[in-house]
Amino acid sequence: MAKYNLKINGEMQQVDVDPSTPILWVLRDHLNMPGTKFGCGMAQCGACTIHLDGNATRSCVLPVSAIGKSAITTIEGLSANGTHPVQKAWLEHDVAQCGYCQSGQIMSASALLKSNPKPTDEDIDNAMSGNICRCGTYLRIKEAIKTAAKTSNAK
């Protein structure tokens, strides 16, 4: 066990866990932040996507000991009330079916738009293909990303 001071959604949090613990389980089990989902445990499905210093990262394979001073953003930190342009676009297109993968999809999409404000269809495919949606909402996700790109740019 070891103590870690983590910057999560702008606030410092301290946890005392085994250094090998993936940040996914630190968030879910130790910090009671269940918005980040467990899907596969081997970075294959993207349900656990968070931002590490703004970059989309699979939290299920990232040990807490590797985080250091990097800032973590989770779905809870994107905006608590759904006001982030990506969240708004998701609501506008009524994307979700079961909804389980959507935290990860939204985190991947928001990281994409941060680095590439006007993504092409191909850019979207490349950035999002690590995120599986078992319900098959891919078309709406793509539309929502395009909508978010427009509204973000309009700001």
């Binding site: 932040m33 918005g35 009330n81 759904g82 959507q102």
Partner: peptide, 10 residues
Amino acid sequence: EGLKIVTGKP
């Protein structure tokens, strides 16, 4: 439940 889904509610 759309808003709860996009904000990661439990």
